[in-house]
Amino acid sequence: MGQVFNLPLLLQPGFRVSDRAVFIPLLSCFGRIMSEQMLRAYNISVDFSGLRALDQVTLEVESGEIVGLIGPNGSGKTTLVNVLTGHVRPMAGAVTCSDIDITHMTPRNIALQGISRTFQIVRLFSNLTVSENIEAAAISHGCSRRSARRKAGQLLEKFGLERVRDQFANTLSYGDERRVEIARALAGDPKFLLLDEPAAGMNETESESLLELLACLPSEQKLGMLIIDHDMGLMMRLSHRLHVLASGKTIGEGSVEYVRKLPQVIEAYLGSDGNGR
């Protein structure tokens, strides 16, 4: 594990590159050495004014897999996603994407590396139409206006949003907002997709169809997915692996079957009687 880390870290001291153009040759250079597509947070610690939000958490998401990040409220799930996307600077530890050190990159450059996210509280562009919301994401990843429009059309169809394509984003229902945000996150053809509570506020049928959509994304688009959600049923059916946080520490990770039987997980998350859904 340490081996993989040394290469990017060697380059790191004083090495501040702020633009994508400089990173593309770097990316292809490393890509040749190790073609492994992996988003990895290594020994991440985060302090919020004395409160330890994350404590030496290591998490890996490989291309093509769905990792479920679960844990009780305040266990640091969203903070970990914020660290991965550069919105929160870790106090210690490193984040790499396909062996490029992205720990100190700005959120913008991380996004351009192909890491895309949605937010716990939906953040849509409220005065843009649904279609424009998705087009904007495609444009920011270098699409022309025309190809962005085409891409938006495809995603709208995929997510069943065609009926609202010309509505402003601030007129949508809650479930539609969530779907638009996921479609927007996909518009830049990300390598890794981080979803923070994608099914929150959706009814049973809606989250069921969302599950079907999300389940086939990794193989279709060759992306790795990290999902946070409180719907345990959904998480257990969707995830290939689970990663459990409690009070900022990893208390278990592995296959769904393995994790749900761990006593510390049962105690911290599912309730001590062990009868979680």
Binding site: H87, E132, H141, R145, R184
Partner: peptide, 26 residues
């Protein structure tokens, strides 16, 4: 307004964090 820069600028206007987080150069 309809150009690439225009669309992205309007995205930044509506939500700075989300727009920058998807790669817009504010």
């Amino acid at each position: 307004k309809e150009s690439r820069a225009g669309v992205l600028l309007r995205a930044v206007r509506d939500d700075e964090i989300a727009a920058v987080g998807m790669g817009a150069h504010l």
